[in-house]
Amino acid sequence: MRKAEIITAFILGLFSLGMMWKSGEGSAWNPDVSRFDNIGFIDGEGPGSGFWPFWLSVIMFICCLWIAYNWYKRTSPPSQSDEPFLDSHGIKLLLVVGGGLIGFLLSIFVIGFYGAIFCFLIYYIRFLGKHRWTTALLISSGIPVFSFFFFDIAMRIILPKGYLEPLFIPLYDIFL
């Protein structure tokens, strides 16, 4: 936990510096404006476009230094903890659930929302949850079917279908 605390503070500190740098960017259509010209007060215009995000990023960076100081002094609970940030159960969880979520997201581009929902629910309920096949199949097919009729048919919110699009054309012919 202690190591994770300082690594996270370091990454967030870098992110804050990046935000400061990015906030100082002038508009592309005005070549006369150089970087960081927009973070102060502009006569007749008030604070520039970078004023608010730049100074917020400065405060964020100072907070990261403060977190690092607390880590050094061991004053915050995570900096005092000798426990691992994620134990073997946590790592497994992040890999199987977090990985499953990313797999769900990526598969939407290939097999669309409905196909991806079916596969993700089977993966989670049957293989991670170890429920019976009947339970897994019932929920995994019930939710996409309900979603299709709710979104595509009733609400006309068309969800992406990827390569499974041709399978839905007969359904549109029937219900729309």
């Binding site: 659930v97 979520l101 769900f104 997201l105 939407i108 929302f113 929902i117 993700f120 629910l121 989670y124 309920i125 991670l128 949850g129 170890k130 429920h131 339970t135 929920i139 939710i143 979603s147 979104f151 969800l159 992406p160």
Partner: peptide, 16 residues
């Protein structure tokens, strides 16, 4: 293990 994946699905579908 049934509730969590349903919430994940709702989150993704809801955002889209």
């Amino acid at each position: 293990t049934i509730l969590a994946p349903v919430i994940f699905v709702l989150s993704l579908v809801g955002t889209y």
